[in-house]
Amino acid sequence: MEIVVSDSMVQNTNQVEGRAVPEKTLGNIHVDNPRMTARNVDVFYGDKHAIDNISLDIGASQVISFIGPSGCGKSTFLRCLNRMNDTIDICQVEGEIKIDQQNIYDPAIDVVSLRARVGMVFQKPNPFPKSIFDNIAYGPRIHGLAASKVELDQIVESSLQRAGLWEEVKDRLDQPGTGLSGGQQQRLCIARAIAVSPEVILMDEPCSALDPIATAKVEELIHELREQYTIVIVTHSMQQAARVSDRTAYFHLGKLVEVGETKQIFTNPQHELTQDYITGRFG
């Protein structure tokens, strides 16, 4: 049994390697109303060329999902959008990424205020080992968003409400956030990101550590949040991409192969690689 599986995997890899990754991205990288625009972005980890000349618009009040096999660069590209790659010493980003016509890699821009505008939710729920209240209040406090305790209370309540967690935790705001269940922790992290009122929320496989019911709740939340926020979500689950996103971008070996309306990508992909990936022939 094992032998059969690994054989077919080898075959698949060969097929993939044999196929040409297109030089130019298929589909329309532009949108009418972009919140962020990336042009000719290259990322290097030391000698490794992790992202190869990617250009992409991220539309305002839309959900765009990044899909692709492991190591294709989708998370790396995501982390470029709020400069989280700055914390990695050997990582070097070239090209131009703009938010509202401002280049985020401009030396004049403050990475702290950038990250307040472009929030992030991580793969594994990572609440601070503090109370639920302090978790949410962390961002508003460091950015000085609340003038008084009353205002801070309001921010915490509205963030938790928007994350659909308020009813579950309102009686135990002083309990540690780490005591919640995995799905609740992830929604707490989303609420924490919302609390600083970002324009864009980046989500790096937000449901990969959650069970199906918790996943459904988070997806529902993403669906509601799209009205106010621009959301970029990296996911391994194609069903999830199909369910939550308006546009879908398919990454392969550091290149953006194809991008388009989610419906079109899943029903009528233009490139063979995209087709094979979404039909589960490899990945």
Partner: peptide
């Protein structure tokens, strides 16, 4: 990461 992601 969580702290930096929030702009600390």
């Amino acid at each position: 990461d969580a702290a930096y992601g929030l702009g600390s």
